[in-house]
Simulated assay, not measured.
Amino acid sequence: MYLVVGLGNPGEEYKHTRHNVGFDVVDLMAKKYNVSINRTKFKGMCAQINVASEKIILLKPSTYMNLSGESVREASSFYKIPNENIIIIYDDISLDAGKLRIRSKGSAGGHNGIKSIIECMSSDVFTRIKVGTGKPQRELISYVLGHFSKEQRVIMEKTFEASIKATQTIIEKGYTDAMNQFNGFNAN
């Protein structure tokens, strides 16, 4: 069993912002598997799918980004999912828009959602799919809570599809295969 978590902030005002790319990927994955993320549980919204005969819980924390770890901890604890089977999908401003990077552990790198997960899980060991949103040219908060241009959105849609494929590869073939295949992905 796997827990696939898309990070973001709840509410219409945050929909499709740079900070909500994790929500976008998980929503697209749910759509691909013909399910709705509509169950309220674990301080978030969740649904269940199957990938390669594995049960997958899709989760979008409703705690706002800075408390995402509370939702992840509740879901992983309830299902007894080991950290190695937790996949977190989130925005990364240190990567150019359209790039992906997969890691199995590490620091929060300044991302408050990841910082919260590390604190709540008492571990930095969980798979991360970092979705590049580009470096801010202006103040950080307004940048990450801003929307992509029409042209950027086309690039990001390709990146979201690659993120779904990377998630499926992690589940079907393992972290190393996914890393070899998708680190270096560039939708530009």
Rank of each mutant, 00 (worst) to 15 (best):
L3P: 05
V4K: 06
V5W: 06
L7P: 01
N9C: 10
E13Y: 04
Y14M: 02
R18S: 09
R18H: 12
N20W: 10
V21S: 13
G22F: 07
G22N: 07
G22K: 13
F23Q: 09
F23M: 11
V25I: 15
V25Q: 00
V26A: 08
L28A: 09
K31C: 02
K31G: 02
K32N: 08
N34P: 01
V35L: 12
S36K: 13
R39F: 07
R39W: 02
T40E: 14
K41T: 05
G44N: 14
A52D: 15
A52N: 14
A52E: 11
S53M: 13
S53P: 07
S53I: 08
E54H: 15
L58G: 06
L58Q: 01
K60G: 09
P61W: 00
S62F: 03
T63N: 04
G69S: 04
G69Q: 09
G69H: 07
E70C: 02
S71I: 11
V72F: 12
R73G: 04
E74P: 03
E74A: 12
F78M: 09
F78D: 05
Y79Q: 08
K80E: 13
I81M: 04
P82Y: 02
N83F: 03
N83G: 15
N83A: 12
E84I: 11
I88T: 06
I88G: 09
I89Q: 09
Y90V: 08
Y90E: 01
I93W: 05
I93P: 00
I93M: 14
I93V: 15
S94H: 12
S94V: 04
S94M: 04
L95D: 04
D96C: 06
A97Y: 04
R101T: 07
A108F: 01
A108M: 03
H111T: 04
H111Y: 02
N112H: 10
I114M: 13
I114N: 08
I114T: 11
K115L: 03
S116G: 10
S116M: 06
I117F: 05
I118Q: 03
I118D: 08
E119Y: 05
E119L: 08
C120P: 00
C120M: 11
D124A: 07
V125K: 14
F126Y: 12
T127C: 14
T127P: 07
I129D: 12
K130D: 09
V131Y: 07
V131I: 15
T133C: 11
T133A: 09
T133K: 00
Q137N: 15
R138M: 10
R138G: 11
R138D: 13
E139G: 00
E139V: 00
L140P: 00
I141T: 15
I141S: 14
S142R: 12
S142W: 04
V144L: 00
V144S: 00
V144I: 14
L145H: 07
L145P: 05
L145K: 11
G146M: 04
F148H: 11
S149C: 08
R153K: 15
V154G: 08
V154L: 14
I155Y: 01
E157P: 02
F160V: 10
A162Q: 05
I164N: 05
K165Q: 12
I170P: 00
I170E: 05
E172W: 01
E172L: 03
K173A: 06
T176F: 10
T176N: 07
A178Q: 06
M179A: 11
N180H: 01
Q181W: 02
F182T: 04
N183Y: 11
N183D: 13
G184N: 08
G184P: 00
G184T: 01
F185I: 02
N186C: 10
N186K: 11
A187F: 07
A187I: 10
